[in-house]
């Protein structure tokens, strides 16, 4: 057991080193991608919190979260694609969106 553990460690270290080197090499992309992911994560969390109260239209969600209406719709469409959000009933000229009862595995959380 101990021997097997010591055999795996160098491989893991090599992988870590390789990823570290790649991160340095691609720093001009990794930085902005990380910042964007953090921004979207925060926005999606706010949308989830809003929808946890009740279903809402994109303008209602935008008003509650402080997000721009077009960004709200874009994020809702993305969350819908990955099964986190579903379209509910209609209010006037807008559809309402709700959290899916059982959201599938997602890396957004």
């Amino acid at each position: 057991m101990t021997q097997a553990k010591t055999e795996r460690t160098p491989g893991k270290d090599a992988k870590k080193d390789a990823m570290k080197a790649l991160r340095a090499e691609r720093a001009q992309w990794v930085g902005p991608a990380t910042a964007k992911a953090a921004e979207h994560k925060k926005a999606q969390k706010a949308i989830r919190a809003c929808l946890a109260q009740a279903s809402a239209t994109p303008p209602e969600i935008a008003a509650a979260t402080g997000l721009a209406p077009d960004t709200t719709l874009w994020l809702l469409a993305s969350m819908k694609k990955f099964g986190e959000v579903v379209e509910a009933d209609k209010t006037g000229a807008y559809y309402r969106y709700a959290l899916a009862a059982q959201a599938p595995e997602s890396g957004e959380g």
Binding site: L75, A77, F82, E108
Partner: peptide, 21 residues
């Protein structure tokens, strides 16, 4: 795709929704 945390505009959908990296 489900595990990826990065969203970026999906050109395949006219940019109207996001896709993962």
């Amino acid at each position: 795709e489900y595990a990826c945390p990065v969203l970026t505009p999906d050109a395949e959908q006219g940019g109207f929704s996001g896709r993962k990296a």
